[in-house]
Design a protein around this nucleic acid. Structure first.
Length: 569
DNA sequence: GCCGTTTTCGGCCCGACTGTTTTCAGTCG
């Protein structure tokens, strides 16, 4: 079963359009909330409607059940159709621009007739936006800047969003008899966090038959041996056909990044005295059977695809110094998960049971701290109550150990969010920035380093604050942060939420170089997203991490021992 | 629009920042 993404999108659009219309915010939120519930609980709405059980789920009242039933039965919601006839649905994209909410979107639409990002860009260029009350020359410039970012992100997708599509195509290719071999290449094979296309390489002797087969399924564009099309999810797919004798060579060359291939080409020429040819294997008398054979032939150690980003991979492969990278099987600890005590959907027990079922030995509950009011952060009294619940659960021996953690806000001055007497009650403190993002680089860096220096901090959470394809990292000197973590012996989080993947892999490499241990944390708010931790593992591999570098790979006893050895005085 | 009652209406997460404002609305996390 897959979540009905079209319905989720409609509900989210209704929420935004109602706000633009000026409706009650809480009414609008009811739709966004329903979309959140469907996604986080992975609801099969069709099944629920058929069984008449949708109304039993909290958040779905009479009106929503009626609309969703209509959707299941007819494929559309007349309320939504009427709404979009009054307010153009394109306006939803305008509200994605930071600093522009529903009210300003409405104002722009009513005064200048702005419907699209392109309209808005032109109006800024024509200096029309600055003249509207509520805007200024400065805000116009900020908007223009944001539009540049959005345009740069256009057509790009989060990697996790492309997995399903890649799988579907993979299965399809397997079923074409004329396909001899096939593989993902490019960004997807390298596990890049953002991808611009799903790219496959196919080995075949009968191009036309493969094309004919695919043509039955998709609306193809054909250019020589290259087939492209877009899916319903607007994911760009490219399928490249090749004769079997060049398959392995192309598999390698299409997988690496430009930087990597440049240094590979240089090395290739130095080693073989042959000019590098991207399309055809230059040692023409030889047909490669595998990538391993290719690396061996060049006296290089095998380079896993995710490391083929730059020259470093070639240097290390020459030295035979590519380590055994961390894998899913190595993880024992599920660190940094939220529960219904703050803004999570599930109880501690549910989160613990789900983690145990995934094979984990221990789980560290890290709900939000008291300042995070919007996330129902825990006041000191509720911390005590929560610890009581954890003690009771642990005494029942449910097959997984539950540790008492907290995700403490890092306050603007760099201090943690509780007094010492509360802080010392936690087994694990993850310290994260959740507010006051717009400090200067110096101030933000100083703030975070101050938090790292606290004897109660064990792990620095989502260190750059980036949200892939929607928010840039806050201004911070990340190298200094990593160096501070190294100096004070603190752990840095690799936030595995696929919208974050924060720390970026380039910095993970630096952290490893500095001897900083990494915690791969799902930051889950429901049981379904606990598996996000596995996206983190794939990303950690891009940062060259070995099991030894990752604290989740420690057993329960080893982890506690390690945590207790940090900073606490 | 949903929820939960000391049931059918009032509250819903709330505080801080930002920019334009001169007392605040809009946005954000």
């Amino acid at each position: 079963m897959e979540v009905d993404k079209k319905l989720v999108k409609i509900l989210r659009n209704i929420a935004i359009l109602l706000q633009i219309k000026g409706e009650n915010v809480f009414k609008a939120n009811a739709y966004a909330n329903a979309a959140d519930i469907i996604e986080s609980m992975q609801l099969d709405v069709r099944d629920l409607v058929r069984q008449g059980k949708l109304a039993e789920i909290k958040g779905f009242g009479e009106a929503l059940v009626k609309k969703i039933t209509e959707y299941v039965e007819t494929g559309k919601i007349s309320f939504y159709e009427k709404l979009t006839s009054e307010i153009p649905v394109e306006l939803v994209t305008i509200t994605k621009i930071p600093g522009i909410g529903p009210k300003k979107t409405k104002l722009l639409f009513e005064t200048l007739g702005i419907k699209t990002i392109d309209d808005l860009e032109q109006a800024c260029i024509d200096n029309k936006v600055a003249k509207i009350k509520g805007f200024s020359a400065k805000s116009q410039e900020i908007i223009l800047n944001s539009i540049q970012h959005i345009k740069a992100w256009k057509g790009k997708k989060h990697q996790f969003a492309c997995f399903q599509e890649a799988n579907n195509i993979d299965i399809l290719l397997k079923n074409i008899p004329e396909v001899i071999e096939h593989s993902l290449v490019g960004e997807m094979r390298r596990y890049s966090e953002i991808v611009s296309q799903v790219h496959f390489l196919v080995s075949t002797n009968e191009n036309q038959k493969v094309i004919d087969y695919l043509q039955q399924q998709f609306n193809l564009i054909l250019d020589g041996n290259v087939i492209t099309f877009s899916t319903d999810e607007e994911i760009d797919v490219k399928i490249q056909l090749t004769e079997p004798k060049n398959y392995i060579w192309l598999l390698h060359n299409l997988t690496g990044s430009e930087k990597y291939i440049n240094s590979f080409a240089k090395y290739f020429t130095e080693t073989t005295s042959q000019p590098f040819n991207f399309e055809q294997f230059p040692l023409s008398n030889k047909v490669l059977k595998s990538e391993s054979e290719l690396f061996e032939l060049l006296d290089l150690q095998y380079i896993p695809p995710e490391l083929r980003e730059n020259e470093l991979a070639i240097i290390r492969a020459k030295e035979k110094a590519i380590p055994k990278l961390v894998s899913e099987r190595d993880l024992k600890g599920m660190i940094h998960v939220h529960s219904s005590w703050s803004d999570g959907f599930n109880t501690i027990e549910q989160m613990a049971n789900a983690s145990r079922n995934l094979g984990f030995e221990y789980i560290v509950i890290c709900d939000h701290s008291q300042t995070a009011k919007y996330a129902n952060g825990l006041e000191p009294e509720r911390v005590i109550q929560q610890h009581k619940e954890i003690d009771e659960l642990n005494s029942k021996n449910i097959g997984i150990k539950i540790l008492k953690g907290i995700e403490s806000d890092i306050l603007p001055d760099g201090s943690l969010d509780y007094d010492e007497d509360i802080l010392k009650k936690f087994d694990v403190v993850v310290a994260s920035v959740h507010s006051h993002f717009k400090m200067s680089k110096n101030e933000m860096t100083r703030r975070i380093i101050y938090a790292i220096m606290s004897p109660y901090t064990h792990i620095l959470g989502h260190p750059t604050g980036r949200l892939l394809l929607s928010r840039e990292s806050y201004e911070v000197d990340i190298k200094s942060i990593i160096e501070a973590a190294s100096d004070y012996g603190k752990i840095i989080e690799l936030n595995a939420n696929p919208y974050r993947l924060d720390l970026p892999w380039e910095h993970i490499i630096y952290a490893k170089e500095k001897g900083v241990k990494i915690a791969i944390n799902p930051d889950s708010h429901d049981t379904n997203s606990l598996t996000d931790v596995f996206y983190g593992v794939k990303f950690a591999r891009k940062g060259w991490l070995e099991p030894n570098d990752v604290v989740n790979c420690l057993s329960h006893e080893e982890f506690l021992k390690y945590i207790n050895s940090l900073g606490k005085s």
